[in-house]
Computed example of a mutant assay.
Amino acid sequence: MKINVSGHHVEVTASVKEHIEEKFAKIATHFPTIISIDAIITKAHGKHYVELTTNYEGTAVSVSANEEVMYPAIAAAGKKLDAALKHRKGQLKAKLHEKPFSTAPDIAYEKVQETNFS
């Protein structure tokens, strides 16, 4: 999985990239179909904002988090992304388990009426 990290008013160092890869390793194992995650780290008004965007099974999934310190903001965004991906996976699985719809109950009734049980 490729993680694209960019910063706005924040210098993205090797330790920040390493921390992000460490936090998202769990997501990569749980959702192997994810190809890339885009992470934008912004500092504004004394807070760090982290926005994560990815594409999962044809749908864009985006989350954001903000904290006073950058590392807890990254962790919070990672937890939110994991929860959003689990929610999306649940929606996809629910469609697989829909009950079949019977289209011809009247035909079955007519067949029973036509049969001779004597």
Rank of each mutant, 00 (worst) to 15 (best):
S15N: 10
S15P: 04
S15G: 08
V16N: 03
H19V: 06
H19F: 14
I20D: 01
E22A: 14
E22S: 12
K23I: 11
F24A: 05
F24I: 03
A25Q: 14
K26V: 10
I27A: 15
I27Q: 13
I27Y: 04
A28T: 11
A28W: 04
T29Q: 14
F31C: 11
F31P: 10
T33E: 14
T33R: 14
I35M: 09
S36H: 12
I37R: 01
I40H: 08
I40A: 11
I40L: 15
I41M: 06
I41W: 03
K43W: 00
K43T: 05
A44W: 05
A44L: 01
H45Y: 03
G46Q: 04
H48N: 13
H48V: 05
Y49E: 05
Y49N: 02
Y49Q: 02
V50W: 02
V50T: 08
E51M: 04
L52G: 04
L52H: 04
T53Q: 13
N55D: 13
N55C: 06
N55M: 09
N55A: 09
G58Y: 09
G58A: 11
A60L: 13
V61W: 05
V63M: 07
V63P: 01
S64K: 09
S64E: 14
A65W: 00
N66K: 14
N66S: 15
N66G: 03
E67H: 12
E68Q: 09
M70D: 09
M70Y: 07
Y71E: 12
Y71R: 08
P72Q: 00
P72G: 00
I74Y: 03
I74F: 01
I74A: 01
A75Q: 02
A76V: 04
A76Y: 00
A76K: 01
A77L: 07
G78S: 07
G78Y: 04
K79L: 11
K79Q: 11
K79A: 12
K79V: 05
K80V: 02
L81H: 06
A83N: 11
H87K: 15
H87V: 10
K89N: 14
G90R: 13
G90C: 08
L92Y: 12
K93Y: 09
K93Q: 14
K93D: 15
A94L: 12
A94N: 13
A94T: 11
K95Y: 00
K95D: 06
L96N: 14
H97D: 10
H97W: 03
H97R: 10
E98Q: 13
K99N: 13
K99F: 11
K99V: 14
K99D: 14
P100R: 05
P100M: 03
S102K: 15
T103H: 05
A104I: 08
P105E: 09
P105C: 07
Y109T: 05
E110Y: 02
K111F: 04
K111M: 11
V112W: 02
V112L: 00
E114M: 03
T115Y: 04
